Deep mutational scan, measured.
Amino acid sequence: NKFNKELQWATWEILNLPNLNEEQVKAFIDSLRDDPSQSANLLAEAKKLNDAQA
């Protein structure tokens, strides 16, 4: 389904953001699992944090 694909994509993207530490990655992945419908928003937040920590 749509959420499953978005969840998989967001998870992959977050795992590959180079500037997030392990705790941050875990927190984003946990949030994705808690509410897959928020995957686009969570991915945007993760990318923003990744850029800020570059």
Rank of each mutant, 00 (worst) to 15 (best):
I29N: 02
A40V: 10
P36H: 04
K47F: 07
N50A: 05
Q38E: 05
D34S: 11
L49G: 01
I14M: 04
F3D: 15
S31Q: 12
E45A: 11
A44R: 07
D35M: 09
Q38S: 11
I29D: 00
F3L: 14
E13T: 08
N19G: 05
F28T: 01
Q38F: 06
N19W: 12
P36L: 13
L7G: 04
T11R: 05
D30Q: 10
E45F: 08
D51V: 07
L15K: 12
L49M: 09
F28A: 03
S39G: 05
T11V: 09
P18I: 09
E13I: 08
Q38D: 09
D30L: 07
S39L: 14
D51A: 11
V25K: 14
A46V: 02
N1Y: 00
F28W: 03
R33D: 04
F3M: 15
S31V: 06
A27Q: 12
L17A: 01
L32A: 04
A44D: 09
D30I: 10
L20A: 00
L20N: 00
P36V: 06
I29R: 02
W12P: 02
N21E: 07
K47E: 04
A40Q: 13
W12L: 07
D51I: 06
N21F: 12
A10V: 12
N50T: 01
L49Q: 06
S31N: 12
W9H: 15
K5G: 14
A46I: 02
D51F: 09
N41D: 07
K26Y: 07
P36M: 10
N1W: 00
K5Y: 03
K47H: 10
L42F: 06
T11Y: 09
W9E: 15
R33S: 14
L42E: 01
A27I: 12
Q8V: 10
A54K: 08
F28M: 05
D34A: 13
N1F: 00
L17I: 01
K48P: 00
D30V: 08
R33M: 15
I29G: 01
L32Y: 02
D30H: 09
W9D: 10
S31I: 07
L42W: 05
F28G: 00
L32H: 01
L20W: 00
N4L: 14
D30T: 09
E23I: 11
Q38H: 05
E6H: 07
E45K: 10
L32F: 03
N41V: 12
R33Q: 14
D51K: 07
Q24S: 02
V25I: 09
N4W: 15
T11H: 04
D30N: 10
D30E: 12
L43Y: 06
N50F: 01
Q38K: 11
E13F: 06
E45V: 09
N16R: 09
N4T: 07
A44W: 07
E22A: 12
K2G: 15
P18Y: 08
A10W: 05
L42P: 01
N16Y: 04
E45R: 09
Q53Y: 07
K48A: 13
A10H: 05
D30F: 06
A46W: 01
N19K: 04
A52N: 06
Q24T: 04
D34E: 12
A46P: 00
F28I: 05
K5H: 05
D34K: 15
A46Y: 03
P18N: 09
L17W: 02
E22G: 14
L15D: 04
K5Q: 12
L32V: 04
S37L: 07
Q8G: 03
S31P: 01
Q38I: 06
N4Y: 14
R33V: 14
N50R: 01
W12R: 05
D35F: 08
L43N: 01
N19L: 04
V25R: 14
A52H: 13
E45M: 14
N16L: 11
N21A: 10
A40R: 14
Q38W: 05
N1I: 03
P18L: 09
S39F: 15
N21Y: 13
I29T: 04
K5F: 03
D51G: 08
D35H: 08
A44M: 14
F28R: 02
N21V: 07
N50V: 01
N16G: 13
A40E: 10
A52Q: 10
N19D: 05
W12I: 08
A44T: 11
D51M: 11
E13R: 14
A54L: 07
I29S: 02
N16Q: 10
L43W: 04
K26T: 13
